[in-house]
């Protein structure tokens, strides 16, 4: 999967031939004003669904961000169902009954620290995964010798589908900044997505590989895409640093803004144990 995007990445790699170098420097930054940060999903899988509320902190502060307690969160679907979330741990809010469904639109209302925010999303359609396969690569250009796992599954006809692929190796989510893989179907609409490698380093027999395919609303795709750009933004061809979008909107346009995202996704997954 990592090789799939690599148009510009390879261009940048060409520059590694030259003697460029990076080093960590000290930079003084002004104190930011703390903003509400939202992280949460509703899926087509059984709940509970979890929303985490925290506050933004200074860029170089590496402690846990302060949580936002005592907020009032109400999640409503366009079929009329509504549920008030419970704070099950400090800053962690969960549903009990609500079941996410493909095609439903959802609005999350957040009342916290005197401000009222709303976030709208939906759960989009998703294709199934036919399964994962493995193959031994030997002396093939561009590959180290060894075993690789591959994704196989259809893509739905009709452009406008957006996906995120989460890859778990031996149960652990691959979650470095450049592991955030989001794609649109503009180039692959309705094609069979077969033989896409999921690992860049060879696997061993006994290793387990799991893929989660998430369908994304368009705006959430833009959010994750902008996030990918901003957290991998180094080098000659870097983009202008800018704030990543959010769907969490303060009802009072003059009030403080929020960051983060409340997203609806459908989820399919597949697993393979390397033989």
């Amino acid at each position: 999967m990592k090789r799939f995007p690599f148009f510009l990445t390879l261009l940048t790699a060409g520059l590694a031939l030259l003697s460029s170098c990076t080093d960590v420097v000290d930079v003084e930054l002004p104190e930011p004003e703390p903003l509400l940060a939202v992280e949460g999903n509703i899926t087509d899988q059984p709940g509970p669904y979890t929303i985490r509320l925290t506050k933004t902190g200074p860029y170089f502060q590496d402690q846990e961000p302060p949580v936002v307690r005592g907020a009032e969160l109400v999640l409503s679907a366009n079929d009329g169902t509504t549920e008030t979330l419970r704070e099950t741990a400090p800053g962690v809010y969960q549903t009990r009954q609500l079941q996410g469904k493909i095609g439903q639109h959802y609005v999350l209302s957040i009342k916290a620290e005197g401000q009222h925010y709303r976030a709208a999303t939906e759960i989009k359609r998703i294709p199934g995964i036919d399964g994962l396969s493995q193959q031994y690569k030997q002396n093939e250009p561009g590959w180290d010798n060894g075993i690789y796992a591959f994704y196989n599954g259809p893509e739905l006809p009709g452009a406008g589908d957006y996906y995120r692929f989460k890859i778990f190796l031996n149960g652990e989510l691959q979650n470095d900044p450049d592991d955030l893989v989001v794609r649109d179907d503009a180039l692959v609409d309705g094609r069979y997505i077969g033989g896409i490698e999921l690992n860049s380093e060879p696997l061993q027999p006994g290793d387990s590989v799991r893929v989660q395919l998430l369908s994304l609303p368009q705006d959430y795709y833009y959010f994750l895409n902008e996030m990918f750009t901003q957290i991998n933004n180094v080098g000659l061809f870097s983009s202008p640093p800018a704030n990543v979008r959010s769907n969490v909107v303060n009802v009072d346009p003059a009030g403080p803004k929020a960051v983060g995202y409340f997203a609806g996704t459908a989820v399919r997954s597949a697993r393979l144990t390397i033989q």
């Binding site: 930054l29 002004p30 104190e31 930011p32 703390p34 903003l35 940060a37 992280e39 925290t54 933004t56 902190g57 200074p58 860029y59 502060q61 961000p65 989510l173 979650n175 900044p177 955030l180 996030m227 901003q230 957290i231 640093p241 704030n243 990543v244 960051v259 983060g260 995202y261």
Partner: peptide, 14 residues
């Protein structure tokens, strides 16, 4: 950037 938040384990600048 001068601020940050964590989204699904990744630090996002603000």
């Amino acid at each position: 950037p001068n601020g940050r938040f964590v989204y699904e384990g990744l630090v996002v600048p603000v």
